[in-house]
């Protein structure tokens, strides 16, 4: 019985979120007594393999091919499918990143197996492993069991485990280099360079106070209310994705996994439900205040101060009180 963690590298750099998955995998290995191995997939990524080999793992595979230099789902699956078929791990773990979302379902399907995606943890029930994942945008959690032969595939959500708690090994683990045989004809997608859209006009990472609005604001004109609060507090205005998608605020004011990651002293979330893709962008804030009419909104799981109520009734008197308090 064996666990294999596939760490993520992009353009030759180890994605640190891989350590979170390794921490989770080490915990599962402790509880099950299964061996833990890791693999990195790429071209000339030996340095990453060595870094991972410093952690408490039995072995690290460095899966290499020139065809893996730029990420494509075809090349990754062409490299990993025969590798997994040969090594037969019981459990394959990966971080739930955009890259993994792109190839992992294809890989599992190619091997006739299922993938339980975006897990926040695991449970051991007898000899059964259950994976915990969010459903209905975080309103519920589910315990999911595999009903098939291994290998079992699972991905862990960012923040599911603490990357800084990954255990170091007593001595570096052995590294085995595997040359993947990938014909150029296997690659159908031709990826271009990774780029960032025109430079950002505002840098919210430096803001001390942020007032963020979500779909609860209902209409574009109601943004004025949030602006009044931001002004009274002397803070910046920001938003969840749907507000920027609608064009009510520019993209560079979007907080979350596809926007900015911020950590102000005060983050006020107005009418934001608290989907994980938003939370990852603001959970590092020192104090989080949430106003939401739904007492079960997931945002209250990260809020320090919660107000269950209608933001249109709460904000106007709050603006007045803040002005008074500031004198």
């Amino acid at each position: 019985m064996k666990i294999l963690v596939i760490v993520e590298q992009r353009e030759g750099k180890l994605n640190r979120v891989s350590f979170e998955t390794l921490t989770g995998a080490q915990a599962i290995a402790r509880e099950t007594g299964w061996a833990l191995e890791a693999a990195v997939v790429g071209s000339g990524v030996g340095e990453i393999a060595r870094e991972v080999a410093g952690k408490k793992v039995a072995k690290v595979y460095d899966i290499e091919s020139p065809q893996l230099a730029a990420y494509t789902p075809d090349a990754f699956v062409a490299a990993l499918k025969p590798f997994l078929a040969e090594k037969k791990p019981t459990l394959v773990l990966m971080p739930h990143t955009y890259q993994v979302r792109d190839f992992a379902p294809k890989l599992a399907t190619a091997l006739g197996r299922a993938l339980v995606s975006d897990c926040t943890g695991y449970k051991k029930k007898g000899d059964k492993l259950l994976f915990v994942r969010q459903m209905f945008q975080g309103k519920f959690a589910a315990d999911v069991a595999f009903d098939s032969e291994p290998p079992y595939f699972a991905t862990f959500q960012t923040g599911a485990f603490r990357g800084d708690q990954v255990e170091a090994g007593a001595s570096p683990a052995a590294i085995e280099t595997v040359q993947a045989d990938i014909p150029a004809s296997a690659l159908r997608n031709k990826p271009g360079e990774v780029f960032k859209e025109a430079k950002q006009a505002v840098d919210l990472t430096q803001a001390q106070i942020i007032v963020a609005v979500g779909r609860g604001i209902k209409e574009e004109k109601n943004l004025a209310l949030a602006r009044q609060l931001a002004e009274a507090l002397g803070g910046e205005i920001a938003a969840s994705r749907p507000i920027c998608d609608a064009g009510w605020l520019p993209m560079d004011r979007q907080i979350g996994s596809s926007g900015q990651t911020v950590a102000p002293k005060l983050y006020v979330a107005l009418g934001i439900s608290g989907a994980i893709q938003h939370i990852v962008g603001m959970k590092g804030s020192r104090t989080i205040v949430a106003v939401n009419k739904d007492s079960e909104a997931p945002i209250f799981e990260v809020a320090d101060i919660g107000i269950v109520g209608n933001l249109f009734e709460v904000i106007p008197p709050l603006v007045e009180e803040i002005k008074k308090a500031k004198g």
């Binding site: 299922a114 339980v116 459903m135 519920f140 589910a142 315990d143 595999f146």
Partner: peptide, 28 residues
């Protein structure tokens, strides 16, 4: 199906949230 949902539940809160209650003016 290779995946089985055994149980669905409201996630356990891990953080202590201080809730402020009352009419809007008091809350503010």
């Amino acid at each position: 199906n290779q995946l089985n949902i055994e149980r669905l539940y409201v996630p356990q809160k891990t953080k202590k949230t201080e809730m402020i209650e009352g009419p809007p003016a008091d809350v503010a």
